[in-house]
Amino acid sequence: MARTIGDVILDLQNISLSFGGVKALTNISFNVRQGEIRSIIGPNGAGKSSMLNVINGVYHPQEGRIIFMGKERRKMNPHEAAAQGIARTFQNIALFKGMTVLDNIMTGRNLMMKRNFLWNALYWGPAQRDEIAHRKRVEEIIDFLEIQHIRKVPVGRLPYGLQKRVELARALAAEPKLLLLDEPMAGMNVEEKQDMCRFILDVNEQWGTTIVLIEHDMGVVMDISDRVVVLDYGRKIGDGLPNEVKNDPEVIKAYLGAVY
């Protein structure tokens, strides 16, 4: 299936965010187009994670406008952002440690499961049909991410790389329009990174999911991104195609110079 990049789905305009005296983001604007992989890069503490937290309503910027799917949105909590189709993974794994892989992924579908607790207490008729129908979708995601063998394992017992994959599965289970990934490959070995790259590309290609990706590995970023935003000290210092960004003198000075 050929990829098609559509219109702007998320438009961030003049976003500023500060914590007390610390300015995490200063006057940042960029947009994300339907179906693209949009990366955010920058040195440690540049404000990348803060940016994601702004997008899905964990943080509320003091200034700026957020337009998602054509609608400007005011203050919104993460749960409402999820209901609008924004899912994410975290830089530090945020799985539900006491639950199995399967249950963790099933929580990704909670928003779509509307039976109330009385039905569930009976586990009868529609409640059971619901559980089974959603389980089927979750099994497709489990197959897709190749984690069939661990579905009944409590996530706390899994190695780090697999936990990251389960977290991606949970986010995918919500069938998001916009998927935010905060360093999904951090701390992985080469093989695990390759797998993760493949999954991200497949999600994007097969399901047309729009992805915003934070990643430190420049090779990966340059390989899989459509466009890249560069942050430094809470400011945007670059934005464009991977090649443009890579050759931008200011970006090289601030960031890439240190890597290459």
């Binding site: 964990v58 952002a81 909670n110 928003l111």
Partner: peptide, 23 residues
Amino acid sequence: RTHTGRAWMAVRDMDVAAEVIGI
């Protein structure tokens, strides 16, 4: 064993993540 219980456990295990996933 249904989404009611999974929501409880999600809130127990990590409330921020639970909210982000839409609970």
